[in-house]
C-alpha cells in the first residue's frame, strides 16, 4: 500500500471502487459540509472535494476535506494548477497530509475566464503531469521538487488524476493517460460519460496498451434530471458529447427524474462490464441527494 487510503485498499483488493463528489460552499459555514456529507456517507469509498471548480471562489478544498473527515467521509482533496505555484502546492500537500487527508486528485483546473474572477492572473507554474510527478516524488523519493530531502513524515498520498476520453485529439488521450501513469498517478477519474461507444473504444485502446494494469480507472457517470441539462452540456461544455438518442430518451420521458435515475443505473451496469474499469466516479451535479437512491439500486451497497 502506498498510503493509508481506504479507497486504495478497496481498489487494490480488486473490489469495484466508488467515489463521488462534494462541492464546498461559497461561504464559510462549516455545517454546510457536514449537511452535504449526510447524503454521501456510506455510499462511496471516498468523496472528491473540489478545488474552486469552474474558477468560482469557494471554501478551500483542503479545509473542506478536513471538515469532511470530521463528518465521517474519506475525502479526495482536489488540487488545480491554476491558482498555486510549486511552493504553495507542496506546502498544501504537507498541510493536507498533516490533517489526515490521504487521497489527492491533481488537475489543470478550469480557466479563470469561466469563473467569477476572469481578470485574475493564472499560475500554471506546473501542469497536471508535472504536479503528479512532484507529489509522487514527495511520497516515494522523499524529496521536494527542488531535490531537497523531506527528512521525515513524507506526505503519503494516494494520487489521482483525470482524463477526458471525449476530448481531442482522440488517440492522444490514451497517450496522455500513459503519461499520467508514468508520472505516478495511482487512479484516474474520467470526464462524465454519455457517449458509451466512444468510451468503450477508448478503453479498448487503454487495455491494448496495458495502462489499466498500471492505474485504477474510475468511470465518470453523471445522472441528470432533464434533457435540458444534457443539451446544455452538449452545447456548452468543451469535451462533453451527448448522443442524440439519449437526449431524445430524456425529452420523451413522462417522468424525467425517474428516467434519469434509470439511465444512470444502466450506464453503471454497462461500465462494470467493460474490461479495465476499476470503479465508478458518480457526479450528480447539483443533485447530490440522488446518490443514495442510485447506489441502492445498483447493488454496489454496502460499501466495503
Amino acid at each position: 500500500m502506498k498510503s493509508d487510503s481506504k479507497l486504495e485498499k478497496v481498489l487494490s483488493e480488486g473490489k469495484f471502487g466508488v467515489t463521488c463528489e462534494l462541492g464546498p460552499p461559497q461561504h464559510a459555514d462549516p455545517d454546510n459540509i457536514s449537511k452535504k456529507a449526510e447524503h454521501l456517507k456510506g455510499n462511496a469509498d471516498a468523496v472528491n472535494i473540489t478545488d474552486n471548480q469552474t474558477a468560482i471562489v469557494r471554501m478551500s478544498s483542503i479545509a473542506a476535506s478536513k471538515l469532511a473527515i470530521d463528518a465521517g467521509l474519506e475525502p479526495v482533496a482536489q488540487m488545480v494548477c491554476r491558482d498555486r505555484n510549486r511552493i504553495a502546492m507542496q506546502s498544501d500537500i504537507l498541510g493536507a497530509a498533516a490533517l489526515g487527508i490521504k487521497n489527492i486528485l491533481l488537475l489543470s483546473g478550469d480557466h479563470q475566464t469561466f469563473g467569477n474572477h476572469p481578470e485574475a492572473s493564472n499560475v500554471y507554474d506546473l501542469d497536471s503531469i508535472n504536479l503528479i510527478q512532484m507529489v509522487k516524488n514527495m511520497r516515494d523519493e522523499k524529496i521536494f521538487q527542488s531535490g531537497d530531502p523531506i527528512k521525515e513524515h513524507e506526505p503519503r498520498m494516494f494520487i489521482g488524476a483525470v482524463e477526458n476520453p471525449f476530448a481531442d485529439p482522440f488517440e492522444f488521450r490514451v497517450a496522455r493517460l500513459a503519461k499520467k501513469a508514468n508520472a505516478g498517478a495511482d487512479f484516474i477519474q474520467t470526464q462524465c460519460i454519455f457517449d458509451m461507444n466512444r468510451f468503450k473504444e477508448w478503453m479498448k485502446m487503454v487495455v491494448d496498451r496495458g495502462i489499466h494494469e498500471r492505474l485504477y480507472i474510475l468511470a465518470g457517470i453523471t445522472p441528470v434530471r432533464s434533457h435540458k441539462a444534457l443539451v446544455y452540456m452538449n452545447k456548452n461544455v468543451a469535451g462533453i458529447t451527448v448522443p442524440e438518442e439519449l437526449i431524445k430518451r430524456m425529452e420523451d420521458a413522462d417522468e424525467p427524474k425517474e428516467e434519469g435515475v434509470k439511465v444512470a443505473i444502466e450506464q453503471i451496469q454497462e461500465i462494470q462490464a467493460i474490461e479495465g474499469v476499476a470503479g465508478l466516479h458518480l457526479m450528480p451535479i447539483g443533485w447530490e441527494s440522488i446518490t443514495s437512491v442510485i447506489m441502492e439500486k445498483t447493488g454496489l451497497l454496502p460499501r466495503p
Partner: peptide
C-alpha cells in the same frame, strides 16, 4: 486596483 490580466497572456 488589482490589474486585469486578461489583456496579458493569461487568457
Amino acid at each position: 486596483d488589482p490589474k486585469d490580466w486578461r489583456t496579458s497572456t493569461n487568457a
